[in-house]
Amino acid sequence: MEYAVFAVAAIIVLAGAFGVVVSRNPVHAALSLVATLFGVAVLFVAQEAHFLAAVQVIVYAGAIVVLFLFVIMLLGVDRADDLDTEPLIGQRPAAVLAGLALGGALVAVVVTSTVTGAPRSGAEDSAGADNVTQIGRLLFTEHLFAFEATSVLLVIAVVGAVVLARRRRIEEIDREEPVTDLGRDDGSAGDADEPVEEHA
């Protein structure tokens, strides 16, 4: 039965991943990403990481991808990308080559080596407790400092996001950031004077 679960989940995961890469529309890419995330969550469950599976769905599918969709919709960048042209010469063949080499090498690693290593000392303390209890115990004893650090990180990220995304008044933007040409080569000089487009 585990084989069946694995096979289905693996197919979902890989199909979703391909979907992310080849979708022209960013919304479709995001949906494919959700499929992959679900597949991974299923694989987590199959490996008895129930808690992570739930967190994966809540955090990734419920928050991160929703955030992606929000950005896509609010900015109105949901039109299809042009996938036929490639401005960087040689990027695609090189990417495919690198991808093949990377995949091959990684699979080679998996095939040629065996999993070695010993369980963390003290792992037997929490043996027998269920998954959530084990993770919780480890999180609040051994990794307490890292845990607190991540909480600080989240707060910083929230503040940073607010600062980054705060919509300032147009004149303020013009005063603070005189350089508006973000490197587009046809660089229409008029860009600087155009008011910021209002999406929302």
Binding site: L88, Q91, A95, A98, G99, A101, A105, V109, T112
Partner: peptide, 23 residues
């Protein structure tokens, strides 16, 4: 993306080195 390509190439080389060494 060019930078990313460089990173990827570097990763490939590293992994390859470790694989070959393991072999």
């Amino acid at each position: 993306r060019s930078y990313a390509l460089g990173v990827a190439a570097g990763a490939v080389v590293l992994v390859a080195v470790f694989v070959l060494r393991g072999v």
